[in-house]
């Protein structure tokens, strides 16, 4: 299956790579990447659909609804590392296509 690696997707993957084992909140990813929710969430959805991203619900505050958390799966980590290397080597332009 083809997976479009837009600069925004690469930016999101790079954010996850900063602390690969930590769970992240949607709004924090949005602030780190500068992506609006309308851009960020479709990327997260696509990553999750392709099993590159795992999601979880955090129930820290009683009486409050849970908060959604995101983290790359082992496959997602491998994928992100491969494509970070590709990008740093200058092989990727504005957008790249890859098999996810």
């Amino acid at each position: 299956m083809k997976f479009r690696l837009s600069p925004q997707t690469l930016e999101t993957l790079n954010t996850f790579l900063q602390e690969p084992k930590d769970w992240k909140y949607g709004y924090d990813i949005s602030r780190n990447t500068g992506l609006k929710s309308g851009t960020l969430y479709p990327i997260l959805m696509r990553l999750a659909e392709r099993k590159l991203l795992e999601t979880s619900w955090e129930t820290s505050e009683p009486g409050k609804p849970p908060r959604h958390l995101y983290r790359l799966t082992p496959d997602g980590l491998r994928f992100a590392r491969e494509h970070r290397l590709v990008r740093s080597a200058g092989h990727t332009g504005a957008a790249a296509w890859s098999r996810g």
């Binding site: 709004y27 969430y41 999601t55 908060r67 959604h68």
Partner: peptide, 8 residues
């Protein structure tokens, strides 16, 4: 996903 966005 909608719940997650609302919570944020």
């Amino acid at each position: 996903w909608a719940s997650a966005m609302l919570r944020e």
